[in-house]
């Protein structure tokens, strides 16, 4: 069982990573607008991954996503959102994309 200290450490690292992403999304990202071809955007994907899987796995998933962003798009399903084509890549590890 996890000690209360480890829980605090875990949540604080998640919070600080989320703060960095929040800062990026609020102040940096709007300067060049919505460019990410994939849905959700890389920063949103990372934020959701951190929220769901904790800081360590969330950041790994985020860096992996940044390297994959906009590439090998034939592997992802696509859909139109607001008249724009997006490639769907969700952070959930459903069975369709579950790591064994």
């Amino acid at each position: 069982m996890k000690s209360p200290e480890s829980k605090i450490k875990f949540s604080s690292s998640s919070t600080s990573s989320s703060l960095v992403i929040g800062y990026y999304q609020k102040f940096i990202s709007p300067t060049y607008g919505q460019r990410c071809l994939m849905f959700p955007s890389c920063s949103q994907y990372t934020a959701e991954s951190i929220k769901k899987y904790g800081a360590f796995k969330g950041i790994l998933k985020g860096t992996d996503r940044i390297m994959r962003c906009g590439l090998d798009l034939h592997y992802y399903p696509s859909m139109y959102i607001d008249m724009r084509k997006y490639y769907i890549d969700l952070p959930e590890e459903g069975i369709g994309n579950k790591n064994k």
Binding site: D64, R65, M67, I95
Partner: peptide
């Protein structure tokens, strides 16, 4: 280090995901 480990994690995940999608 984050990007390096992300590359390893992503490779494993990509292979597993493609296998599952092929099966599906």
């Amino acid at each position: 280090t984050g990007f390096y480990l992300g590359n390893i994690y992503g490779s494993v995940n990509f292979a597993a995901r493609n296998n599952n999608n092929k099966r599906k």
